[in-house]
C-alpha cells in the first residue's frame, strides 16, 4: 500500500503526464482492495476511474471480477456484454473471461466435493435422514459388526426421535457423545477435570471442588493439606442449615455463600442439586469466578447425565 500511496503522491506532486495515467492509479488502488477481499471498495475505485475515462478497459475488467466475486451475476453479465462489445477482438479480455469462468468452475467443484464428503444433515429432509440411518444400519449388519448399537433394536418411531434429537444437537452445536446420550465415566471425569482446571487457572484460585448437595464429593482439585471430605461435609451442612432459616426469614433461596478465614476465602455456589466450592487467596477476580462457577452449575446436569 505504501508504494501505491507513493504513486498517488508522486502523481499529484509532479505534473500529470496524461489523464489516463492518473486514472490508472485508481485502478491500482482498486486492485489492492480486490486482493485484500474488499470488493466493494474496489468497485468504488473502479467507478471513480470510469467517471474519468468511461471506456477504461482495466477498470471494467476489475469491476467484472468484483461482481463475480460478490455473486452479482446480472451485473457481471452486463459488464461482460459491455466489454465484449467494446473490445470484440481483445485477447486480454477473452483470456480474462476464460480465467474467471475456469476459477468459478473450480470453486464449484471443490464445494461439491466438500458437500459430498460431509452430508448436510441440517438441511436434509427427515425422510432422507431416516433412510440414511437405515442404510447405515444395513451396513452395520452386513459387516457383522460385533459392537452392539442401540439403533439395531430401535423401533422406527424412536429412530425418528433420535434423528430429531441429533438434528437439534447439531443445530445447537452440541454433539451427542454416545448412542445412549450419556457420557462415559472417563469423559465425565475429563470434562469435570477440565472445568475445575479452568477455574483453578484464574489468578489467586487455590483449589476447587464439586460436591452433591448431600456432601458426596464428585470431583476435587483442592489445595494440599485440605481434607476434601471434611470440606464437602461442611459445605453441605452450611447450605442445609441455612436453607431452613432462610425460609423462615422469607429470604427466598440461597444463591451463594462466601467465607473468609484469615487469608483464605471460600466461595460456594449452589445450583441443580450441586455445590461448587472455590478456595482463593485474598485478592482474586470474584466476577470471573462467579461467571465460571455459574456456567459449570448450568452445564453440570448435562455433564453428569442426570
Amino acid at each position: 500500500m505504501n508504494s501505491l500511496e507513493d504513486d498517488l503522491s508522486n502523481s499529484f506532486d509532479g505534473n500529470i503526464g496524461s489523464e489516463r495515467e492518473s486514472v490508472l492509479v485508481f485502478v491500482s488502488l482498486a486492485e489492492e482492495f480486490f486482493k485484500n477481499g474488499s470488493f466493494e471498495e474496489a468497485i468504488n475505485y473502479c467507478r471513480m476511474a470510469l467517471q474519468q475515462i468511461a471506456d477504461l478497459k482495466e477498470a471494467k475488467l476489475l469491476l467484472y471480477k468484483c461482481f463475480v466475486k460478490l455473486g452479482l451475476d446480472k451485473d457481471a453479465d452486463n459488464m461482460k456484454i459491455e466489454l465484449i462489445s467494446e473490445n470484440p477482438d481483445d485477447k486480454e479480455v477473452q483470456a480474462l473471461f476464460n480465467d474467471v469462468e475456469e476459477s468459478i468452475d473450480e470453486e464449484k467443484q471443490i464445494k461439491n466435493e466438500n458437500e459430498a464428503s460431509t452430508p448436510d444433515i441440517i438441511n436434509e429432509p427427515k425422510h432422507e435422514l431416516v433412510k440414511s440411518v437405515d442404510e447405515a444400519e444395513e451396513k452395520i449388519r452386513s459387516e457383522d459388526n460385533t459392537q452392539s448399537t442401540d439403533i439395531s433394536n430401535m423401533p422406527k418411531h424412536e429412530l425418528v426421535e433420535a434423528v430429531d434429537k441429533a438434528e437439534e444437537e447439531i443445530k445447537s452445536g452440541t454433539q451427542e457423545v454416545s448412542d445412549t446420550g450419556m457420557l462415559s465415566a472417563d469423559q465425565t471425569e475429563n470434562l469435570l477435570d477440565n472445568a475445575l482446571s479452568e477455574i483453578n487457572k484464574i489468578k489467586g484460585v487455590l483449589g476447587s471442588i464439586i460436591i452433591e448437595e448431600s456432601g458426596i464429593i464428585i470431583k476435587e482439585k483442592t489445595v494440599e493439606g485440605l481434607d476434601a471430605e471434611v470440606a464437602s461435609a461442611l459445605f453441605s451442612t452450611i447450605f442445609y442449615v441455612s436453607e431452613d432459616s432462610i425460609e423462615k426469614l422469607n429470604l427466598g433461596q440461597i444463591d451463594r455463600v462466601f467465607i473468609e478465614i484469615g487469608k483464605v476465602r471460600v466461595y460456594l455456589f449452589k445450583g441443580n442439586g450441586y455445590i461448587i466450592g472455590i478456595f482463593t487467596e485474598e485478592i482474586v477476580k470474584i466476577g470471573l469466578i462467579h461467571v465460571k462457577a455459574k456456567q459449570l452449575l448450568l452445564n453440570i446436569k448435562k455433564v453428569l447425565g442426570v
Binding site: 471434611v230 470440606a231 461435609a233 461442611l234 451442612t237 452450611i238 442449615v241 441455612s242 432462610i246 426469614l249 422469607n250 429470604l251 427466598g252 433461596q253 440461597i254 444463591d255 451463594r256 455463600v257 462466601f258 467465607i259 473468609e260 478465614i261 484469615g262
Partner: peptide, 28 residues
C-alpha cells in the same frame, strides 16, 4: 450453628483470625 460447623471443620475462630461469612439469597 453454621459457625459451630465451620469451627469444627476449619479450626476455631479467634479474635486474630475471625470467620467472616456472607450468605447470599434471592431476597436478602
Amino acid at each position: 450453628q453454621i459457625s459451630r460447623e465451620m469451627e469444627n471443620s476449619l479450626g476455631k475462630a479467634t479474635d486474630e483470625i475471625p470467620i467472616l461469612a456472607t450468605i447470599y439469597s434471592s431476597n436478602g
